[in-house]
Simulated scan of single mutants.
Amino acid sequence: MRSAWGLVMGGAAALVWGECLNRRWSRTLVGNGAGASEAVVVLGYRNPRAAINVINRWRVRAGLRSIASDKARDTRVIFSGGATGSGPAEAQLMADYAKSVLKFGGHVLIEDQSRTTWENVTNVIPLLEGVDRIKIASQPAHALKARAYLHRQRPDLAKRLVVADDYRPGEWAVLKPLLALYGLWTLRGLQAEERKVSL
């Protein structure tokens, strides 16, 4: 009985830990920017086949729900990611999914050359010029990494970063401890100042 109770408590602790870390990452390196225009950057995930995978489908949904309701007409959604196999680029797959399945009719831009997160950020910078607010949508650890890279490459644009709607309590709950472990590994290269929670 004690071992079963210990397993339950350990599992609950892991779920809470995963939720807390993912929430923390979603609110790091963002501000409370204001303005009439915004860009939502949706980062792609390895998609070697011709059909969009489940992670990219989720990232598209997270990106679209990140559009501020009062800014819908002034928002550009930027899908970023190159081809990882013989199929189409991740960005194109995500844009097609947003338009054909989710019926998104807003302003879409495609960046289809990137193969790494650093390249994602580098290649979308020209598409971010002139917007007042920038949101980066992905799994929280990945989005934080991209925000840190924007701070390194263009600190002036990084001042316009605001929180995206890519963290929701309970969403992916069972996987969040694993995502947190993976996130800790992928974020190991960030500096201390790049880990400070902003909100």
Rank of each mutant, 00 (worst) to 15 (best):
residue 51 A to Y: 07
residue 140 P to N: 05
residue 195 R to G: 01
residue 44 G to P: 08
residue 168 R to T: 10
residue 13 A to P: 06
residue 1 M to Q: 14
residue 37 S to N: 07
residue 199 L to F: 08
residue 145 K to H: 05
residue 169 P to Y: 10
residue 123 N to T: 09
residue 32 N to F: 12
residue 121 V to S: 13
residue 71 K to A: 14
residue 94 M to L: 05
residue 129 E to F: 02
residue 17 W to V: 01
residue 122 T to P: 03
residue 75 T to K: 11
residue 48 P to V: 10
residue 66 S to A: 05
residue 194 E to D: 12
residue 160 R to C: 00
residue 48 P to N: 09
residue 46 R to P: 00
residue 115 R to S: 13
residue 21 L to K: 11
residue 120 N to E: 10
residue 106 G to T: 06
residue 110 I to V: 15
residue 91 A to E: 08
residue 42 V to F: 00
residue 60 V to R: 00
residue 130 G to Q: 07
residue 66 S to W: 00
residue 50 A to L: 11
residue 20 C to E: 07
residue 169 P to D: 05
residue 197 V to M: 11
residue 98 A to R: 02
residue 139 Q to F: 14
residue 39 A to N: 00
residue 96 D to A: 15
residue 109 L to D: 10
residue 15 L to A: 09
residue 192 A to E: 14
residue 178 L to N: 09
residue 11 G to S: 15
residue 89 A to D: 13
residue 150 L to E: 07
residue 124 V to F: 06
residue 180 A to T: 07
residue 113 Q to G: 07
residue 181 L to M: 14
residue 150 L to H: 05
residue 109 L to A: 15
residue 196 K to H: 10
residue 84 T to I: 03
residue 141 A to F: 09
residue 67 I to G: 00
residue 189 G to H: 12
residue 11 G to W: 13
residue 176 K to D: 04
residue 143 A to G: 04
residue 55 I to R: 10
residue 182 Y to S: 14
residue 49 R to F: 09
residue 197 V to R: 14
residue 172 W to Q: 04
residue 80 S to H: 00
residue 139 Q to H: 15
residue 95 A to K: 00
residue 140 P to Q: 04
residue 32 N to R: 15
residue 36 A to R: 14
residue 151 H to Y: 12
residue 11 G to V: 12
residue 135 K to L: 11
residue 98 A to H: 02
residue 98 A to G: 04
residue 29 L to Y: 00
residue 36 A to G: 14
residue 169 P to H: 07
residue 61 R to T: 03
residue 196 K to Y: 02
residue 119 E to C: 08
residue 9 M to V: 04
residue 71 K to G: 01
residue 179 L to C: 02
residue 158 A to W: 03
residue 37 S to A: 09
residue 64 L to W: 08
residue 6 G to R: 14
residue 179 L to Y: 10
residue 97 Y to A: 02
residue 165 D to V: 05
residue 8 V to H: 09
residue 61 R to A: 09
residue 129 E to D: 13
residue 38 E to H: 01
residue 104 F to A: 03
residue 161 L to Y: 03
residue 116 T to N: 15
residue 60 V to W: 01
residue 127 L to F: 07
residue 2 R to W: 06
residue 37 S to P: 03
residue 22 N to C: 10
residue 172 W to H: 02
residue 159 K to R: 15
residue 159 K to D: 13
residue 148 A to V: 09
residue 37 S to F: 04
residue 70 D to P: 03
residue 136 I to W: 04
residue 199 L to W: 10
residue 165 D to W: 08
residue 15 L to F: 04
residue 54 V to S: 15
residue 131 V to P: 05
residue 99 K to A: 08
residue 172 W to Y: 06
residue 34 A to D: 06
residue 122 T to W: 05
residue 47 N to I: 01
